[in-house]
Amino acid sequence: MNSEFTIAVHSLALLANLPDRMATSDMIAHNVCTHPARVRKVMAMLRKQGYVGAKEGIGGGFFLNCDPSQVTLGEIYLLTSLGSVKPGWCSGDVEQDCMIACNIASVMDSIFSAAERQMIEYFNQWTIQDVLAEVNKEQQRKLVVVIKLH
């Protein structure tokens, strides 16, 4: 899986948490701990698919253009990372005499494709709203711990 998936999920959750405000690529990049150019690349993908909108110029930025309870992590994975689970196989030559070398790539491709399908099914059970709810639960848990320590 590539980091574009995590940047996209993080960015969508951040924007969902700021329903009345926009966020610049610099603000998102600071929050995600990455370079603004990477954020702009991911946001361009999200914008092209209608998940976010953008206002250009002074006072502009990105805004959520979708219902976070309707966007699944599976959708975001398909947009940003499809095929990234499967590594490239450089072992063997189809014309070799070795049974393993001739067949390992197609066998492993099939295994990784099946694993990716299962992962997407799991991701489809989670929405951006679910992620935001889990973040809020984690924040509350940390507040309780801090209160108990004092």
Results as ranks from 00 to 15, higher is better:
N2S: 11
E4N: 13
I7A: 12
I7M: 12
V9G: 02
V9W: 08
S11R: 07
A13Q: 09
L15C: 02
L15V: 07
A16K: 00
A16F: 00
L18F: 10
P19W: 05
P19E: 04
P19K: 01
P19A: 00
R21E: 15
A23Y: 06
A23D: 08
T24L: 05
V32P: 03
T34Y: 00
H35T: 06
P36I: 09
A37V: 11
V39H: 05
V39A: 07
V39I: 15
R40F: 01
K41S: 10
V42D: 05
V42H: 00
M43G: 01
M45N: 06
Q49M: 06
E56W: 01
G57Y: 03
G59V: 08
G60L: 03
D67H: 05
L73T: 14
I76V: 15
Y77C: 02
L78W: 00
L79K: 03
S81K: 01
G83I: 06
K86I: 13
P87E: 13
S91H: 10
S91C: 14
V94F: 12
C98F: 07
M99K: 11
C102G: 12
C102M: 12
I104G: 00
A105H: 11
S106R: 08
M108V: 15
I111V: 15
A114H: 05
A115W: 08
Q118N: 13
Q118V: 13
M119K: 03
I120G: 00
F123W: 09
Q125N: 09
W126S: 03
Q129D: 12
D130R: 04
V131N: 02
V131A: 04
K137T: 15
K137E: 11
Q140F: 13
R141T: 14
R141E: 10
K142H: 04
V144L: 08
I147H: 04
